[in-house]
Design a protein around this nucleic acid. Structure first.
Lengths: 346, 346
DNA sequence: ACGATAATCGGTAAAGTTATCGATGTCAAC
DNA sequence: GTTGACATCGATAACTTTACCGATTATCGT
């Protein structure tokens, strides 16, 4: 900038104004500056600007897993919307590790991002108070924490559990299992929904039918298979399973099929996520759509509202209603369910 | 930092040294500083540091589509490796739009990232010369451009085409089609591999069997269906298809199945990407593994080499060899191929 | 006790940009 | 000719941190 100013016989300030489209500069001068800028293909230093303005135009996104289509879709939607307002996304993955998540967030705080969007795998609120201390706003997505009043965008996870379980009941399942998710709000609430649906329909909650996540479970392929294997050893074998998410459901179905069971006749399956490949699977997977893209869009909207307002607005909470998408994995063919057709051997 | 220094009666410089683990400071002082830092939970301003040191410890990643598991996996691997050396990833998506890619890259240049990693959808090299002008190093992944000597990590795409096509020939296909990818190096080279394999086996190249991508094609679900539909109208219907990637292959298979064809008996299919759900599909999808994770790891390695060396090292090129993974979509059951079994009515 | 070496600390300047406000010039209106 | 309004431009200081080198003290061998 100094060079350009010297070359043109104007001041650095004027050059700066041109670069910011500040009206306070003559047409003639503006043209000359822009010409020289292009000539040198000069690149502004945004780090220096940030230092002065106190804004980085960077939005941090912390997710447990970038590979999971659910989060990838949110990231994509966020990125698209924010870009239009000149904000950029810096994405980090916590790998479902609370420690790592803390480190990542510290790093983002040090970089003075304008705002953070977090799908947290933490179970305590202390870290978020620290964020608030730094006066950096944040929006939670997918998962919230009790005792924390903050912006939140996600799906009604209890409704997810109810919807899936009730559907299994509707198609005639009598012994419904649940392969549950982690100890964060979606895992907890979907379990609650599952329980509520059972109770509302006069069914008992059987502990053996609820498969918990063990620590260090990451690979859903293996976990789904193991969970299903565990269910199949039970004396009163379940005839329906609600799985926390689609990858788990897929793995569970694969295992059941390999063991010779028919889906949905022997055991019906419902997942969650409504991933794009759900209807191309060996057996089309019934799933609960949680509107991932919409979550991203809404989070972006809240983000922009916060960034554009002088004083921090009151926390906003957006809870989307999930939708059931029925496919073959839970479609009982009439007169063709487990009770009416000859039993198969093992 | 000024406050901390004043509180403790030391200079700002000393505080700065402590924060950087500089040895040039006494144990006693170091402890006192660290204590006060924790007390105020003071956050370093990395933007200011960048201004002075000229390094941001940020790595830019530009991909055409974050949702595509291939790129998501690369992003994840990159992020994991780079993090260990204190570098962070800032990811942007170009949506396969060369214009948008240029804007994104400009933005990243202005932010003075230490290095860029790019899966470019551009067909000209001018932009890359501009990057070189800014003295910012970059690594290309997945796609390269002719006339550009730069770092590159990717798979041998001609081998991909040869491997897939030769396999289809091996299982007895006589009329092999190719649903091709975009006009970037992988699309071009895989097509070349396809052609070479045909010629080497004395087969003719039939233009009608090569389905090109039309401009603005993004949704592979629809494109796969349309491409397959186009192939099925041909008088001499193909009995094998090599698809540019797995999502395309999946959509093509779905369409063929819906039209009553049997896979692989009526038409065999091979994709590319070896995605994790490939063996859970209605018909397990044979695919070419392009070692996505490995690409990420190697790119990270090169990146770190560049960042750690004083003078820019000579460009490095890493070409991984693809691997064929055979599943049902191309497994001809003996005595059960299209020629030996009774024809079905359309 | 002396100089030499090492350990510890700090002063100065600089990095690239922008906010704020004051200065100058022009022109029309009265 | 004075006033006011408007357009255009620039000087100063500030944002936070670090590189470089010089200054001070402590330690030690002889």
């Amino acid at each position: 900038m100094k060079d350009i100013a010297k070359d043109l016989g104007v001041s650095v300030i004027t050059v700066s104004k041109v670069l910011r489209n500040h009206p306070d500069v003559g047409d003639e001068t503006r043209k000359r500056v822009l010409a020289r800028v292009k000539e040198l293909d000069y690149q502004l230093n945004l780090a220096a600007r940030s230092l002065v303005t106190g804004r980085t135009y960077l939005v941090g996104l912390v997710v447990p897993d970038l590979l999971h289509p659910f989060f990838a879709e949110i990231a994509k939607a966020l990125s698209e919307v924010l870009r239009q307002s000149g904000y950029y996304l810096i994405v980090t993955s916590s790998d479902e590790d609370p420690e790592l998540e803390e480190q990542e967030i510290n790093q983002l705080l040090a970089r003075r991002l304008d705002i953070l969007i977090i799908a947290s795998c933490r179970t305590t609120v202390d870290l978020f108070f620290r964020i608030q201390n730094q006066k950096i706003p944040y929006v939670l997505i997918d998962r919230w924490l009790p005792g924390l009043s903050s912006n939140f965008v996600g799906v009604d996870d209890e409704a997810v559990g109810v919807l899936a379980t009730r559907h299994l009941i509707d198609v005639g399942c009598k012994r419904i299992a649940h392969i549950r998710g982690p100890e964060t709000s979606p895992g907890i609430r979907r379990l609650e929904g599952y329980k509520r649906a059972l109770l509302e329909n006069g069914m008992k909650i059987v502990d053996d039918y609820i498969i918990s996540e063990r620590k260090g479970d990451v690979e859903s392929k293996q976990r789904g298979a193991e969970a299903m294997s565990q269910l199949l050893t039970l004396k009163a074998r379940p005839d329906g399973v609600f799985c926390f998410n689609d990858p788990l459901a897929m793995a569970a179905m694969n295992y059941a099929t390999k063991r010779g069971l028919l889906i949905p006749d022997d055991i019906a399956v419902v997942g969650c996520g409504n991933l794009h490949y759900d209807d191309s699977l060996r057996v089309g997977l019934s799933s609960i759509d949680q509107h991932s893209r919409q979550i991203g869009v809404e989070a972006a909207r809240i983000t922009l509202t916060i960034l554009n307002s002088k004083v921090p607005p009151a926390p906003e909470t957006i809870v989307l209603q999930p939708e059931l998408v029925i496919r073959d994995s839970s479609r009982r063919r009439p007169g063709m369910n487990a009770r009416s057709r000859p039993r198969r051997k093992k």
